[in-house]
């Protein structure tokens, strides 16, 4: 199996509490995957580890065609390597316009000098407008992000992730607090994105997961409990016991 990201034997503990316990997990390129699990199952910590925010106590994380280890790389380096992350809460730069937010996220050289001498090329601007169209914000380009609605901020953040041109997207509860119509659009966005890159969605809402129509991994107490299609998962007695049944 040619995997894009391979996590094997990873453990991490905080003051004796094992947040992640010998977790192994792999995802192929251009795959859509949903991760579910009860609170404290280690979903967010898993994302923290992959993005370099938390250093695991043990285990390996292998990334990409070149099979590089992500351990020891800074968050910025990991992001540059092609892993984008969306936080649970919408985190966009509210004091800046939608356009500025997107321009900042566009794939480009990230050094201070490159940023200092950056000139907006017509190509970049086309891409920004294209993304704005995808996330339904084409007519909001010059509004400050802080003035957007909650759902629009979520889309903007997804748009920023797409602008990075990543190979792997880690999305934390994208549908939280959205109206049904907004959810539908979000689902479409993620499914569309999964055509070009791998997308991992952490979500509580089973309805949303069902609509994603993809493989599901269930985490429990820091390790994988079950993996498979949603129907397969929902039939699993263990999963029902620890998560669905409650």
């Amino acid at each position: 199996m040619n995997s894009l990201l391979e996590v094997s034997g990873v453990s991490v503990s905080f003051d004796g509490f094992k947040a992640i316990n010998n977790l192994s997990f792999a995802i192929r390129s251009a795959e859509l995957r949903a991760i579910i699990g009860p609170n404290g199952a280690g979903k967010t910590t898993f994302m923290d580890i992959v993005t370099g925010k938390t250093k695991p106590d043990e285990g390996r994380i292998i990334w990409g065609d070149l099979s590089r280890s992500l351990l020891g790389m800074s968050e910025a380096k990991i992001a540059q390597a092609g892993i984008g992350r969306k936080f649970q809460k919408p985190t966009v730069f509210e004091d800046q316009t939608v356009e500025e937010n997107l321009v900042m996220a566009l794939k480009s050289k990230r050094s201070p000098f490159a940023a200092l001498f950056y000139k907006r090329s017509p190509g970049d601007m086309r891409r920004v407008e294209e993304l704005a169209g995808e996330i339904n914000l084409a007519d909001q380009l010059y509004r400050k992000a802080g003035e957007l609605s909650h759902g629009q901020k979520q889309w903007l953040e997804i748009g920023m992730l797409l602008a990075q041109d990543p190979q792997l997207l880690l999305v934390d509860e994208p549908a939280a607090g959205m109206t049904p119509a907004e959810r539908e659009h979000t689902t479409a966005l993620l499914v569309e994105a999964a055509k070009t890159c791998a997308v991992v969605v952490v979500e509580h809402d089973m309805e949303f997961v069902r609509r994603l129509n993809c493989r599901v991994t269930v985490l429990h107490e820091g390790s994988v409990l079950a993996e498979g299609s949603l129907d397969h998962i929902t039939a699993n007695q263990e999963v029902i016991d620890v998560y669905l049944g409650r």
Partner: peptide
Amino acid sequence: LKGRAAGD
């Protein structure tokens, strides 16, 4: 303080 409590 370590871990989550430290606001890491």
